[in-house]
Amino acid sequence: MSCRYTAARTTAEAVEALVAAKGEAHVIAGGVALVILMNEKLVEPSWLVDVSRIDALHGIDRLSDGTVRIGAAVTHREVAESEIIAEAFPMMSEMAAEIACGRIMNKGTIGGNICLADPQGDPPITMLALDATMRTVGPDGRRDIPVREFFVDLYETALRDDELLQEILIPPMKPGSITAFGKYAARKAMDYTSTISAAVRLIRGAGNGRIEEISLGLGGVGQTPVYSEALEEMLTNVRPSDEVFGRVRERLFAVMEPIEDHLYSANYKRHVAAVTLRRTVMKAFSGTWEGEGVLIR
């Protein structure tokens, strides 16, 4: 089957192609997810819209209000190496440095990863913990979608067929915020199924003895990258303790529906999610970490 190809130079060109394709186009940036699906013959694109060379989708900048803007076609490697990000959201640097391996980091993009909406994806949950905004561009212009409204269902986002994710806007964290990212994987590299991850931002209070405020994202525990206000509430204004984490664990078991796969049952994943979350919260809270990089072990 023949495939059309548009090497867009501007967002307008890309959107024009998306409109013309009437929902049949596939946007390609780094291609590391899409081309796997093509090689597996699970996707046979009839129109590829290549957005990797659109200037507006590149660059990492700090805006005047402190917001950090990341172009959707910025690679994981660029995120990992960005000084702006390391300073503003340390967990994002760590997270990006631990995605698959160098080959994938060099090609895969943050926007592509977020738009894939893989429940196991790592970048999406950092967005959830940091309350980022997804700025899209479509035939009717720009749209800003809060990340907590972005992930709709398994591999499904709020992005319309004729829209493109242009950039990600991450507001500055409240003073005193500490971040941490933790990931469970069967092996120490290259796992992208069956991973469980947690992204945490928290503020300590009462002489650093309590969690005053927390926001978090969880990967690998549902049909989408997950946030949970209920869990956040349970972890707000508390001294983290076995009892608190016991309640968190119960809640996780009650509401999370991880996808059972060839490696692990849903129950094992729930268990791992509880451990991952606890270890990651404690990494942020007290700096204790026995893991290696972002790997929790």
Partner: peptide
């Protein structure tokens, strides 16, 4: 053919990538 094994690694502008996941137009 899914970027996992690394047997097809080439350097694209001096950085390693999986050539099985690299579409030719992207390397233009």
């Amino acid at each position: 053919s899914m970027g996992v094994c690394g047997a097809c690694t080439v350097l694209l502008d001096d950085r390693p990538v999986s050539s099985c996941l690299l579409l030719a137009p992207q390397a233009d």
